[in-house]
Amino acid sequence: MMPTMMQRLLQGRGLAQIVALLVILAIDRAVSPQFFDVRMQDGRLFGSLIDVLNRGAPVALLALGMVLVIATRGIDLSVGAVMAIAGAIAASLADAYGLPLALAAALGAGLLCGLWNGFLVAVLGIQPIVATLILMVAGRGVAQLITEGRIVTFTASDLVWLGNGAVLGVPTPVVVVFGMLVVTGAVVRGSALGLLIEATGGNARASELAGIGTRAMILAVYVWCGLCAALAGVIAAADIMGADANNAGLWLELDAILAVVIGGTSLFGGRFSLVLAMVGALIIQAMNTGILLSGYPPEFNLLVKAAVVLIVLLLQSPRFASAGAVLGRARQ
């Protein structure tokens, strides 16, 4: 009885992720008693829970673009490098030309990067992992060229606000993520677009024959992914009031992919969930923040992360759930 109920619960869409998030938050509370304390500090909410949301924002933004790319059976390894490029551009321009131009240039660069990836994948038919690897390597070089290898700092207060400000007490990055989630959700779920993306990922050839413009779909998701990455890069730069081309977004493409996968979207394309990808990003950050609060020696950080990710993925595995059911029946 119990195992089948467990099985049904865990196979319910999204439940495994939400349970995992709650469990991790509970563990965070256990290692750090003040975890859920939230107070106002200089007109901004302040507390570990807010940190989880705020620090998770860049990966959440990356995951928002990545989930659509993965739904088309693609992958975008270049998002970390695109973050570095966008941050470098925004930081270099903000003081001299003001926020609107700096933001437009940074986001424009993200769009161009996405267009390039989309062109390689959709038009030239290069495998996504190889196509985006090119920009992953070259993009960081481009960012380093822009910053000349230095950390470019800025003081433009409106750009700083994007990383450190607040709207009604909620940190700006969190508001930006929420806004992007709503926009993306409205576009892909408010129309047939989401369905067409899923069809493209499920079977591109069949979709093409059924009259779906799969090339346009693929191009569009990479462009959107580039835009999300650029926005994440601007926020990351605004957060530290400087563009660190060597480190901004470094390895975050892997966190973004992980967030999407934890969110239950298969790397083989097809069905996807925007909200669960966000939950995936939150799971990763809740774990990171918990590790920092716990006071364990840093040598354990990666081990703990790997173990948690393994457990979360196992929870979602249908075979694991049915194996549990078989074991349960054997015991009865």
Binding site: S32, Q34, G47, D51, R55, D239, G295, P297
Partner: peptide, 22 residues
């Protein structure tokens, strides 16, 4: 408390935030 900030500004800030709360 002792934790790694990977020599970067972003991680230094994030780790310090958690130190302050803890």
């Amino acid at each position: 408390r002792s934790q790694t900030g990977d020599f970067t500004r972003a991680k230094g800030k994030e780790v310090m935030e958690s130190f302050i709360k803890a």
